[in-house]
Amino acid sequence: MGARDEVLARLRTARDAGAPATPPIGVLSDPVVPRTYRSAGRFAPGGEQVLARLDETLTDYRATVTRVPTEDDVAAAVRAFLRTAGSVVVPPGLPEGWLAAFDGAVRRDEPACTVDELDHVDAVVTGAAVAIADTGTFVLDSGAPDQGRRVITLVPDHHVCVIRAADVVASVPEAIARLDPTRPLTFVSGPSATSDIELDRVEGVHGPRRLDVVLVGGLRPGEQ
């Protein structure tokens, strides 16, 4: 018997031998797990309350957030974040307008950058697939044209992420429902950090040490 059949045979024997007298919920014909937890957060997706909470939780984990009323205001906010950057890399489908005010070198990841090139670029600018206000998280979908290959948001030391109001949800379940599990996804909550020294959180290890977020929408023009 090969390893596969042997392991599966052992597990079948064990599963039956150790079956509890009263089967747990979900074992009977209709597997039901008690999903009485919140399937949606307290705030509606895209609304002012959820954006304000995201601003708070992102900031709490040492990301810098700029809120702007409309997509037209993104370029100025991105430029301000990139003041110290001479060069950026962007995914192939990043909206051109977002970098309209940036006067440094822009490298589109098409053809794909080498790791060495990415190691010498100052920053990366991307969009995001969804953001979670409860946890201060945004998710990058590597199949999305404005987010790109995983490596481009990993090697540069500074990440500027533009998040649209419509993509902001309150809770983890709402975000999971919007994502495609067959694509490589990266959930990002603040700059890279470690709690490995005396269980104290310290920001900045191997991933980008600086994380800036432009949050678009939810404000009336002039409210910025």
Binding site: R150, P184, L185, F187, S189
Partner: peptide, 16 residues
Amino acid sequence: RMNPYTSTWAGVTPGD
């Protein structure tokens, strides 16, 4: 509330 990075992947993704 959430750890800084969670990666998910399924099999091999061409080019990534």
